[in-house]
Simulated scan of single mutants.
Amino acid sequence: MDRSWRRAAIVALPFVLAWAAVLAAFAVLRDRLPDPLASHVGPGGQADGFTGLGAFLPVVTTLLLLSGLLAAAAAHRSWRTGLGAWRMLLATGYGTAAMLAYDFVALLGANADAARAADVTFPLWHLAVSLAVAGAVGWAGWLLAGRGPAPAGEPDAAAGSRLPLAEGEAAVWTHSVGSPVLAVVGAGCTLLGVVLAAVTAAAAVTAEAVLIAAGVISVALCRCRVIADRRGLSVAPWFAPRPRLRIPLERIEKATSREAHALGLGGWGYRIQPGRRALVLRSGDALFLRLVTGKEFVVTVDDAATAAALLNTLIERGRPAPGT
């Protein structure tokens, strides 16, 4: 098994173990559980949402194993990232799996021996314990990362390259780029939100609405078109010319290109970091813009070297000649 598949297995393992723990708890408590189950509680800890006993395990299985699959895919596709990103992925995956396992098992325990699901209460101190468990197991995942592999070296950047243009000649560079990760995550979140909304008769469907909204946004951003021309750089979603992210040419100091890894840039989607903004759709070729403010904007897109060369040429053309 090569390193990428080993990483995928290590990240997926806690989700499989969490699923097995919930399955075991359900089997032990099966004869003591009401039908339907209390599956959602309000701010006071009183049950206000319910799920049929037969639907509970399919929902849990979908949530845990789909999450594990997505985490494993991220680890497999980004195995060349450095130690910091690898540790963060492990800590997040292990902590999330542990928190979900505790919450589901504690919820089953709260339902045990209840005459009616409506009578179930879920003391809110469970939330504190859940966070503590997530933190402890997440820290274990962080330590499990160990020293990690050495960060992969980056190819030489096309630093300050130019695209030859005749005087007065105009040029436009455009390329579309998609993200299988965002497409799968978006579809998974939307499906899970719809399933939970359908099987949970809750007065408030906040969690389900958040899942559906996050899924729709992910699908909307899973493919974009990137354009470089005399106005600067612009990025628009695949389905419409607006909304559009635009960086005017006068705000760009220099453009370069090089290989980048999604986790090394903070993960998939629109990432905000100190001194940097990035639209990350996948690992691979990326366009790096150094802005006049000293900050950086990054977008992952194929043929980024041509876009960088064109932007550098247009920036140079727009600068006043020496002595003027």
Results as ranks from 00 to 15, higher is better:
Asp48Ala: 04
Gly49Pro: 11
Gly52Cys: 10
Gly44Glu: 12
Leu57Phe: 01
Leu69Ser: 05
Phe56Ala: 06
Phe50Glu: 05
Pro43Leu: 14
Ala72Leu: 08
Ala55Lys: 08
Thr61Lys: 00
Leu63Phe: 08
Pro58Glu: 07
Leu64Val: 01
Leu70Arg: 03
Leu70Thr: 02
Phe50Ala: 12
Leu64His: 04
Leu64Met: 09
Phe56Met: 09
Pro58Cys: 09
Ala71Val: 13
Gly45His: 10
Leu70Ser: 00
Leu63Ala: 12
Thr51Glu: 05
Leu53Pro: 03
Ala71Gly: 15
Phe56Ser: 02
Phe50Ser: 12
Ala72Arg: 06
Gly45Ala: 12
Ala47Ile: 02
Thr61His: 00
Leu66Trp: 10
Gly44Cys: 07
Leu66Gln: 09
Gly68Tyr: 01
Pro43Val: 13
Leu66Pro: 10
Gly68Val: 00
Leu69Gly: 06
Ala47Trp: 00
Leu63Val: 11
Leu70Asp: 01
Gly54Gln: 08
Leu57Ala: 07
Thr51Trp: 02
Leu64Pro: 00
Thr51Ser: 08
Ala47Phe: 01
Ala71Met: 13
Leu69Met: 10
Gly54Lys: 07
Val59Ile: 12
Leu70Lys: 02
Gln46Thr: 14
Gly45Met: 10
Thr62Ala: 15
Leu57Asp: 02
Leu57Thr: 06
Pro58Gln: 05
Ala72Asn: 06
Pro58Gly: 11
Thr62Gln: 15
Gly49Thr: 07
Pro58Lys: 05
Ala72Thr: 07
Gly52Trp: 10
Leu69Pro: 00
Leu53His: 14
Ser67Cys: 14
Phe56Leu: 13
Gly45Val: 14
Gly54Val: 06
Leu53Gly: 10
Leu66Val: 15
Gly44Asp: 15
Thr61Tyr: 00
Ala71Leu: 15
Pro43Met: 13
Thr62Glu: 13
Gly52Ser: 11
Ser67Pro: 03
Ser67Asn: 13
Asp48Gln: 03
Val59Asp: 09
Ser67Val: 09
Gln46Pro: 01
Leu70Pro: 00
Ala72Cys: 09
Gly44Trp: 04
Leu65Cys: 07
Ala47Glu: 00
Phe50Asn: 12
Pro43Glu: 11
Ala72Phe: 04
Leu57His: 04
Pro43Trp: 13
Phe56Tyr: 13
Val60Tyr: 05
Ala71Phe: 15
Gly49Glu: 04
Ala55Cys: 10
Val60Met: 12
Gly54Trp: 12
Gly68Thr: 01
Leu66Gly: 09
Asp48Tyr: 07
Gly45Phe: 07
Leu64Gly: 00
Leu70Val: 05
Phe50Arg: 08
Asp48Trp: 04
Leu69Arg: 02
Thr61Phe: 00
Phe56Pro: 03
Ser67Met: 15
Thr62Arg: 15
Leu63Trp: 08
Val60Glu: 10
Leu65Ile: 08
Asp48His: 04
Leu57Arg: 04
Leu65Thr: 05
Leu69Ile: 11
Leu53Ala: 15
Ala47Gln: 00
Leu66Asp: 06
Phe50Trp: 09
Ala55Glu: 13
